[in-house]
Amino acid sequence: MNQRIGYASVSTDDQHLHLQRSALKQVGCGLIYEEAASGKTATRPELEQCRKVLRAGDTLVVWRLDRLGRSLPDLVQIVADLEQQGVYFESLTEKIETGSEAGKLTFHVFAALAEFERSLIRERTQAGLAAARARGRAGGRRPKLDEQQVREIKVLLRDPGIHVADVARRYGVSRTTLYKHVGVIAPRL
């Protein structure tokens, strides 16, 4: 038997699930998974549990699109995964549902816009990196040690009485950074 399963989430503890819960019950969701998780949090155990319960022919219902995905690309990926399982998706506020051809079309327009947005971001990033290279700026993090410091450290480490950890502390870097920049083969504490 096909079920309508709800998923409700809030991003902070001072927000409440009452409105979402009520709306989901009103449209016939017998089972509702509820979660309070930050939008930045990658792990959402209730959503994962909800997705495990869904079977082909079921419908996952949310109050609003932003309750399901942390970003538009994330939302598109979740709905695509559901579609592969034969699970439908419905968002009450935006009146989007993937159970009909018109609903699928609407959602795929959103997906196309998300892909377009990713392409624009990628293009801008590449253009910015090319412009920086043209100005003589290499990308990436600046080295922790300059050439003069590397020469000084090499001289210091020739003395077997000097410990790598002491030199690292003196220059404000880790031992690993010293090994990387100076090429110390046998680590000495």
Rank of each mutant, 00 (worst) to 15 (best):
E152N: 11
E83A: 12
P73I: 00
R170L: 11
F116H: 04
D146I: 07
A114Y: 07
R188K: 12
L65T: 08
T106Y: 13
E123K: 08
V61C: 10
D14N: 14
E101I: 14
E123N: 11
E97H: 15
D14C: 10
T176D: 14
E94P: 07
R142F: 01
R51K: 13
E117F: 01
E46A: 13
A138W: 13
G69V: 06
E97M: 12
I96A: 07
V150R: 10
R70M: 00
A114K: 00
Q15A: 12
N2Q: 13
E97G: 12
R122T: 10
Y33K: 04
L17F: 07
Y33P: 02
E90L: 08
L75C: 02
Q49P: 00
V79C: 00
V87A: 10
D166W: 03
L189P: 07
T125D: 04
D58A: 03
I78P: 00
A131W: 04
P73R: 01
K52Q: 15
K154R: 15
D74M: 01
E115W: 07
R118L: 07
L156T: 01
K154Q: 15
Q20R: 05
R55H: 12
H163M: 15
D81W: 01
G86Q: 04
T98Y: 00
R133E: 12
D13F: 08
R64V: 05
S22A: 14
Q85Y: 04
E34L: 09
P45V: 02
P45R: 02
A114R: 00
E97R: 14
Y171P: 01
Q149H: 09
C50K: 00
R4G: 00
R158D: 14
D14Y: 06
E123W: 03
V62T: 02
C50W: 01
T59E: 08
R67K: 09
L156G: 05
P143D: 10
K25E: 14
S174N: 03
L19Y: 13
L113A: 12
H16S: 13
P160Q: 04
E115V: 11
A132L: 07
R142N: 12
R55C: 13
L65G: 04
A168Y: 02
T177S: 10
E117G: 06
C50F: 04
R21C: 05
V53Y: 08
G140W: 08
V62Y: 06
R175L: 10
D13T: 14
K180C: 03
V87M: 08
T106G: 13
V62N: 00
R118S: 04
A42C: 11
T43S: 13
L189G: 12
L157S: 06
Q148M: 11
R64E: 15
S9G: 12
Q85C: 11
A37E: 13
R141L: 08
L72Q: 10
R169Y: 00
L17G: 05
I32E: 07
R151H: 14
Q15H: 09
G6D: 06
F110P: 01
Q84V: 10
G28N: 01
K180H: 14
Q15M: 07
H18E: 15
A132T: 04
L82A: 08
V27H: 06
W63D: 12
R151M: 13
H18D: 15
Q85D: 13
I121D: 01
T177F: 09
L178C: 04
G99F: 03
H108S: 14
K104M: 08
E48M: 10
L113H: 06
L156W: 09
D58Y: 07
K180D: 11
G30E: 12
